[in-house]
Simulated assay, not measured.
Amino acid sequence: MTQAAGELRVDFVNGAVGHRLRFGGGRGQALAKAMGLRAGKTPTVVDATAGLGRDSFLLASLGAQVIMIERSEEMHALLDQGMQRAAQEGGEFGEIIGRMTLLKGDAKNLLPELSAEAILIDPMHPPRKNSALVKRELRQVREIVGTDEDAADLVRVALKNARNRVVLKWPAKADPIEGIQACSHQILGKSTRYDVFMTG
């Protein structure tokens, strides 16, 4: 199947993801720290809102077993295709994809059945007030998955089911999601923050 110009696709081999794999900074990256990856410790991770799969791929590249959940039929299909292409590359990409499992469904229903040490939640973020043009790719994702109106419910389900921690990825300057408990600590990136809720 040929790809139309500008069509959204999941690419784990080239572009930003491939670059981050080669130059990303390993376990020192904010996401890895937030998820509890450190020397001698590699938790099993559930990415409850898989999206383009980039965070899952990064965590799997650092050795974590990652279960990805995506409820959008279209997004799930894009992820599946991207994983197949990366697996066909073989070598390092094949190994990383081998640590990733993709499930289709609503994370709120699936999390209670999964025994996750660490759960990552990256809901569609509220539209930024100051950015006239959100990156095209993000706009395309938003068009497919919509807005995650139930983000607070998902966090609450995750808090009940994570053995060790829940991490909410959220814009650095955005207000906390209403209706959930305060986080244990935060790890701040340039434009993103990770709200970490310890559950263990």
Rank of each mutant, 00 (worst) to 15 (best):
L79D: 04
T42G: 08
P127C: 04
Q186D: 03
L102G: 08
S56C: 04
M124V: 02
I96E: 05
I144A: 12
R139M: 15
V66E: 02
K135N: 05
G25M: 08
G200Q: 10
M75A: 13
I177D: 02
L8Q: 10
I97A: 06
I96V: 14
A172K: 13
A32R: 09
H76E: 10
R20M: 13
I96R: 05
A118C: 10
G94C: 05
L111N: 03
F12S: 13
D122E: 07
A16Q: 10
K108V: 04
Q65H: 07
A87H: 02
L154M: 09
G63S: 12
T42C: 14
V13W: 06
Q3K: 02
A174C: 11
P126A: 11
S131H: 00
G189N: 06
K169L: 11
R85H: 03
G53W: 06
A87I: 02
M198D: 12
T192V: 15
G200A: 12
A162Y: 15
A32N: 11
N161F: 08
A5F: 11
N161T: 10
R142M: 13
V141W: 06
V157K: 01
P123I: 01
F197H: 09
F57G: 04
D11E: 09
E178T: 05
K190C: 07
M1I: 08
L114P: 03
T2I: 06
R27E: 12
D153H: 03
